[in-house]
Simulated scan of single mutants.
Amino acid sequence: MVRLPLTPEQLAAGKRLGHQLRQARGDRTLAEVAQEAGISPETLRKIETGRMATPAFTTVAALARVLPLSLDELADICLAHTGLRQTG
């Protein structure tokens, strides 16, 4: 199966997600958070820098579990500017 290139909107959502995860990590090291989430530090680095714009749901869920973030918050961040964002 050939994967289609990501759209500009998907790339922007990945950058927003990465920025939010980096902010939530605060002073904790990348390696510490990655280990707690059960992912590699390189995977977390790629997500935080936007180089991995569409990480697996289980990866995002694991990061939300170890950071002070909810999946709802992360969904809102990813869906911002798409018209798909849920409102309260």
Results as ranks from 00 to 15, higher is better:
residue 70 S to D: 02
residue 19 H to S: 13
residue 12 A to K: 08
residue 58 T to P: 05
residue 13 A to T: 14
residue 23 Q to C: 11
residue 35 Q to C: 03
residue 65 R to D: 05
residue 74 L to N: 08
residue 71 L to V: 09
residue 22 R to E: 10
residue 26 G to Q: 04
residue 13 A to R: 15
residue 59 T to C: 02
residue 22 R to I: 10
residue 46 K to V: 07
residue 79 L to M: 08
residue 59 T to F: 01
residue 61 A to K: 03
residue 41 P to K: 12
residue 70 S to W: 05
residue 52 M to L: 15
residue 26 G to R: 04
residue 12 A to W: 11
residue 60 V to D: 00
residue 35 Q to H: 04
residue 26 G to T: 01
residue 30 L to V: 01
residue 67 L to E: 06
residue 5 P to H: 10
residue 14 G to E: 14
residue 88 G to A: 12
residue 6 L to Q: 11
residue 14 G to F: 15
residue 11 L to C: 11
residue 76 D to C: 13
residue 59 T to Y: 02
residue 42 E to C: 01
residue 56 A to W: 03
residue 6 L to H: 13
residue 73 E to K: 08
residue 48 E to D: 09
residue 63 L to Y: 08
residue 35 Q to K: 02
residue 52 M to Y: 10
residue 16 R to I: 11
residue 43 T to Y: 00
residue 75 A to H: 08
residue 9 E to Y: 10
residue 78 C to A: 15
residue 27 D to T: 05
residue 70 S to I: 04
residue 49 T to E: 15
residue 14 G to N: 15
residue 16 R to Y: 13
residue 55 P to W: 05
residue 69 L to M: 12
residue 7 T to Y: 11
residue 32 E to A: 09
residue 80 A to Q: 14
residue 75 A to Q: 05
residue 29 T to M: 10
residue 44 L to V: 00
residue 3 R to D: 08
residue 49 T to I: 15
residue 68 P to G: 07
residue 45 R to E: 12
residue 11 L to S: 09
residue 37 A to I: 00
residue 76 D to S: 14
residue 43 T to H: 06
residue 39 I to Q: 00
residue 52 M to Q: 13
residue 59 T to V: 06
residue 57 F to W: 04
